[in-house]
Design a protein around this nucleic acid. Structure first.
Lengths: 203, 203
DNA sequence: GTCTATAACGAGATAGAC
DNA sequence: GTCTATCTCGTTATAGAC
């Protein structure tokens, strides 16, 4: 028998089983890694069987792929939202960093940062989607950085793409290390310093 | 029958089974993660049985602990070597970054950076050793940074410990992302930029 | 769409012979 | 110090009833 039959409300999508599975799986990947959880973990948490999981996501690789796709989609929407605002580029970068800080405060690592560690053990389709996530972030960052440099709110030398790569990597690494100390303030410190180097700045 | 009975030479320690196991396991952790390999992988590569592995390392947790201990010890020696030189602090930092670049060129992630991703799945003794590794690195970096600021070869604001944390995290993150692209040059770019921000610098 | 049951395999670990 | 043999459990995945 179906466990939950919540009706589709006018507002928002109801939490169908597939969505609930994605929610739990996402948290497990972000905290334990793709090789650090099993279908049994998800099933136990939702009170369903592993067989039901396989009905919604035939294989773990497929679940992983859909996980990244959803995460990237959500992220893209956030980036577009921040990008569309009329704030100075420096503030857009600060808001971007705050997104990562929020993830960390939930005791999680960036989904794709976590998967990047396990990269060589993942199926090629997942690998490709991970790179796409990074590409998306760096492309967005490059645009914001260039915009800030033109407007004078940011100062840096060389290609914006290089600064974007540094910024992204530094945030990912700051999350990675801060998590070992269960200390979000560690991340905030590095984040603020990165921002400051781009605004106060050079020479 | 014993597979290899290489005599202990006057120079260096012969590659006993335990050391060979550590070598293989280290590479597997750095490329696949602690949850991404098994005793069977090591045994197959060395042509021994899993039982033999358990003789040298009773549990996988013990193997993991000894792995970090050896890695930290090697790292400590490298840091002391760099620290003892009479080069300017900026060059010491550059040499430090080159150590990471070398790891990446071997298609590996920093051992403890990798383990930091899997942190929440690891036994507490391993967790503590991971933090010790980061502590060691940040303490060393703090000293070098302070030394460089006093001597005038480095310029930065605020506590050296904060800059050390940023520097360490940024290198770890740069490795993490660069590995997904199999592109060491990505790391070199971020690394050079970090160094430059500390030497060319602020305001 | 969810269940029970089970297949098929790999994991970490141990006993005991040599 | 290394082996063979085995145990126990967890893993992904499938078949078929409801």
């Amino acid at each position: 028998m179906p466990r939950v039959t919540s009706p589709a409300l006018a507002t928002g999508t109801p939490p169908g089983t597939a969505a609930q599975v994605l929610d739990v799986a996402e948290r497990l990947v972000q905290t334990r890694g793709f090789n650090g959880f099993s279908y049994a973990d998800i099933a136990a948490e939702l009170g369903i069987t592993k067989a039901t999981l396989h009905y919604h996501f035939r294989t773990k690789a497929e679940l992983g792929g859909r996980l990244i796709a959803r995460y990237t989609g959500t992220f893209r929407a956030v980036l577009e939202s921040i990008g569309a605002s009329s704030e100075p580029a420096s503030e857009k970068l600060a808001r971007y960093a705050r997104v990562y800080a929020e993830v960390l405060r939930n005791e999680r690592m960036c989904l794709c940062g976590m998967l990047a560690a396990e990269y060589s053990t993942l199926p090629p389709p997942m690998q490709q989607e991970i790179r796409r996530f990074f590409d998306l972030n760096e492309a967005w960052l490059s645009i914001v950085l260039e915009e800030g440099r033109r407007a004078g709110s940011l100062r840096f030398d060389g290609p914006a793409a290089e600064v974007a790569a540094l910024f992204l990597g530094a945030l990912e690494g700051a999350m990675l290390v801060a998590r070992s100390y269960a200390d979000p303030a560690r991340f905030d410190s590095s984040s603020a310093r990165l921002l400051n180097d781009l605004t106060a700045p050079a020479k």
